[in-house]
Design a protein around this nucleic acid. Structure first.
Lengths: 244, 244
DNA sequence: CTTTGCACTACTGTATACAGAAGACCGGAG
DNA sequence: CTCCGGTCTTCTGTATACAGTAGTGCAAAG
């Protein structure tokens, strides 16, 4: 048996056209190129992307599974139009997935995975100091993902990944959210406190901290979304906060 | 405005070949026609099913998202081979999704949805009395789904649906499980008690009941899987029970 | 003026065909 | 005898082509 050499980095598979198309469409939707409810015509997209229909269709199917586009038989694909209830679902699902992961991770927290959390947190600081708002969202996602990964649970991780795409879509739809109201360093600070609570391994304190953290993120987002909204919206939102 | 006529039943869309292929392959896998780890060659399946490759590929993609087949770029599709850790993940994910749904459903249980639970439960009795084991599994799934639906949460429902396919695959792999050890009427009884606890709207009691219910199902399943197993397996399983 | 029927257009669903990569098998060298 | 290299087969990834359906607009009848 040869001497141990540590793990070689996995060779990265060349991406298929379907993968490339998926990320391209993903970015376009999140950037607002295609608006919610807009129909995505296959032939048009093929022409834009310079590929043929089979890989494009596959990309659209992948996206429909992540929930950011909607496929109706014989009627094609549309960009998902979010209702208030959808926002409610996405926010609660995210929070509950984190709760779930931490419940499962708690008895005997994996030190290795905890180091990954710390590393993800460290990567947030320079981004925040550079004032890179988009970068901080991505870095924040990586941190939350590292927390999810504490559970060593591929299915939860996968659910979280696809869910977070919908969350990004939410935020892209009202992308004035977090603009000039978010203190970037404060954001990182909040994540740092989260990690500090996690290492205590005290389930109740952790759940409370994550609830508070979620509210700090979502309250602002939802308030912005509802600015100048009807009483109906405000009422819904109040109900949402009350119940959770 | 015309007089209210209630809701017409949705016209059922004619299924596409991809959908038909998906359910056909699904059934074949669950029936054990294709074994875990076995490679699914596209052209072979096309010939068997009498369709061409595009709809078949789409079906395989759908199945890979539900997690019962595994797709590797340029290497094709294999039936998912379950490890002990996969079983652990599926069982815990299922339980946590139910917990999640009930948490969200609890403040103000929807009476209409609760009626659906009762209806699903009623449908279990005749199936159990007929001794139809496979039918009872399906009916039980419908009951659990109706419980999930209490939350009015499409994303949780979708996660539960695809997860339960994996659960069925688990059980199909050791399909001696639940054979001659399951008291069918006792099974329905257990579900009836579950519903009785739900209507109390007491979160702690509900969670305890579902934990117990899950264990009653899974302990037997996992013990059967591990019958005559190594110490390693027993140790893993003991750890699983301890942690949850 | 409203409504119904029809034809047209455009798009999705499906089939066939080709290119390129991965694995198997065989042959030869050390 | 073992191991490396090469060739061949098989299968996936991708492109092109056709069929069938849904939606739209117009025209004609009530």
């Amino acid at each position: 048996m040869p001497p141990h050499r540590g793990h070689l980095p996995q060779v990265e598979q060349p991406a298929s056209l379907a993968e490339l198309a998926r990320t391209a469409i993903e970015r376009a939707i999140l950037a607002g190129t295609y608006l919610p409810g807009e129909r995505l015509v296959e032939e048009r997209l093929c022409e834009h992307l310079g590929i043929s229909r089979p890989p494009l269709r596959e990309a659209l199917r992948q996206l429909s599974f992540t929930g950011i586009v909607e496929h109706t038989p014989r009627k094609g694909v549309r960009v998902m139009a979010m209702t208030q209830h959808d926002v409610y679902e996405i926010l609660t699902f995210r929070r509950e997935l984190e709760r779930m992961a931490l419940r499962l991770a708690l008895p005997g927290l994996d030190p290795g995975r905890l180091d990954e959390c710390r590393a993800a947190l460290e990567r947030m600081w320079p981004v925040a100091e550079a004032g890179d708002e988009g970068g901080l969202v991505a870095a924040g996602f990586e941190f939350h993902l590292s927390v999810i990964r504490l559970a060593h649970h591929k299915r939860i991780e996968q659910a979280f990944r696809s869910m977070s795409l919908q969350l990004q879509l939410c935020m892209a739809m009202n992308n004035r959210v977090r603009r000039d109201v978010e203190d970037l360093k404060g954001n990182v600070q909040r994540h740092e406190e989260l990690l500090a609570v996690i290492v205590t391994e005290d389930r109740d304190r952790i759940e409370a901290a994550f609830d508070a953290h979620g509210n700090a993120t979502f309250v602002r987002a939802s308030l912005d979304e509802l600015e100048g909204g009807s009483n109906q919206s405000a009422k819904w939102f109040a109900g949402f906060l009350d119940r959770h």
